[in-house]
Design a protein around this nucleic acid. Structure first.
Lengths: 299, 299
DNA sequence: GGTTCGTCATAACAGCTCGTTATGATTGAG
DNA sequence: CTCAATCATAACGAGCTGTTATGACGAACC
């Protein structure tokens, strides 16, 4: 019934004291103002303006409208400003979840550059393994999840239906050997050559991948040590307690003097990507986060 | 940019948690809501809603909008209510000006019935002679003026251009004579028969009318007494100090035992009417006042 | 007091917004 | 796996909302 333009015009008329002046202030033509007032009057069933010769005054109803117009237009301007701040990345919030080895490398880089570029953004971060982080995205508790899959495994595309996937990097799986290991000076290592070794398994998903690769190489790895912490894995390897498959990403932040890492032969990769919902893709803060992640992954 | 319907819809979505429910609450079809949200998102350049499977949540920008929507819609509802009160005569203000003899009769009747019918109206009243009251209407200091003219006088339509005139009554001019006067038992009195009398003149305009009538009757009245107060005029007449022309309206409220009043022959009338501006005609309170005046004048 | 300027009203018209109905796609549940 | 519910899309029409062009009217100024 009452529309924003009507309020704007009534207020302008009250301020300027004339249709023409009000029209100029609003960037309208004079007849536009005239008709708008007439429409509003018809809708409200009462006169809003009163012409006394040259100038124009508001009637009581008109003044009522003008008074409320201040509130309404103020609130709308404020809303507009706040939304524009979000759209312009001067405000906003992103909740990111990432799995541990990315949390140590790509994600901090990305979040740092994000914060540098858009200081107004509030970025929160939680570490979580892929199944959990994806569930959080679905539940709306998380905006961007950084996850990974091993191509070829059954759960490769597990539960990505309805979500948007942004590829970040291909993470080559390495074999971690004690530096004294006979194969340590090879350029690349075939998994079959390690069939007799004692194995150290990392995260559950990577353990699954190890089993899958071993199955293809036709052996059954003897896994004596299991830990989620790749620093620990490297420590165990360095101590000569076994060998391990380690995602290349881990090695960006974790090294060990007594451990050498060699690519697998044939190469095996895990895919690291970011996940969000299609809707959130259009949220500027989310889009900026994804962009920062992609850039950080590329470097 | 942001329109009221958009805010209404966003708020409904936030409250109901779904497009369909929001559409039902607003009396819209579901696609209407869908498109409205899309439009608003396009205009604002950011997503406002976020679908997680079946239900729908607001994004941060959406929540910003919903929060301000409370303010905006509240103010608009309030404005609507206040304007409706004015339009429905539950509120409003009328400023009335009237000349003295009407102030004593028609106008009190009219204002009383107006107040009875619409207690919410604020009616203010000021006594003023026609030239002054008309100027006040033009200046916007008065909404309704009750005035009169003597038909035929040069200033008959004086300064009514651009104003709206509502006829109230035809007020017959009477001759006031001492009861002992030789013509007191006549049914009507010709002005020429009073050519030799001493005259008492009322208000300036009526004095002008007396002079005009006398000119037509071909004599020059000897005016020895002049007063604006018709009670005084009647007192002077009763004391036998002279005769006077008295508007019939005056006699509705003022009588004197020793004064008889007789119609003029030929009859002479003054027209009593209400005046306002064309714009104010559409102000409900003004229209109601005019209507009350017309009714009061008819009785 | 006539003339001229400024202001508002009106008419005709074009574009687009804003609804509708009908239908499709996707998700969650039994 | 099927079904029900929800949102998205398409097509379309009414009506609003501006525009320009022109008229009417009042005010100010020679």
């Amino acid at each position: 019934m009452i529309d924003v333009n009507g309020l704007r015009v009534i207020r302008a008329i009250g301020d300027e004291g004339g249709f023409t002046a009000a029209a100029e202030r609003l960037g309208y033509s004079q007849p536009a103002v005239s008709q708008l007032v007439r429409r509003l009057e018809r809708r409200l069933g009462t006169a809003l303006v009163e012409k006394s010769g040259r100038s124009v005054r508001l009637t009581e109803a008109g003044r009522v409208l003008a008074r409320h117009a201040v509130t309404v237009l103020g609130a709308i301007d404020a809303a507009h400003e706040e939304v524009a701040a979000i759209a312009g990345l001067r405000a906003g919030r992103v909740r990111v979840m990432a799995f541990p080895s990315s949390s140590a490398t790509v994600v901090p880089l990305a979040l740092a550059s994000l914060r540098a570029a858009h200081p107004g953004l509030t970025v929160s971060f939680t570490e979580a393994e892929p199944p959990e982080s994806l569930a959080a995205v679905r539940a709306g508790d998380c905006d961007v999840a950084v996850a990974f899959t091993y191509p070829g495994t059954p759960e490769e595309r597990a539960d990505l239906s309805g979500l948007s996937r942004v590829p970040l990097l291909d993470d080559e799986v390495q074999v971690a050997l004690p530096s004294a290991h006979p194969l340590a000076d090879h350029v690349a290592v075939a998994l079959g050559d390690l069939a007799g070794e004692t194995w150290i398994a990392g995260c559950p998903q990577c353990r699954g991948h190890l089993l899958e690769l071993a199955r293809r190489a036709d052996f059954d790895p003897r896994i004596d040590y299991a830990t989620d912490d790749y620093v620990a894995v490297l420590g165990l390897v360095a101590a000569g307690l076994g060998v391990a498959l380690v995602p290349g990403l881990v090695l960006r932040s974790a090294h060990h003097h007594d451990v050498v890492t060699r690519p697998l032969k044939p190469a095996s990769r895990r895919e690291v990507f970011a996940v969000t919902t299609p809707d959130l893709l259009r949220v500027p803060a989310v889009a900026a986060t994804l962009s920062a992640l992609r850039q950080a992954a590329a470097s």
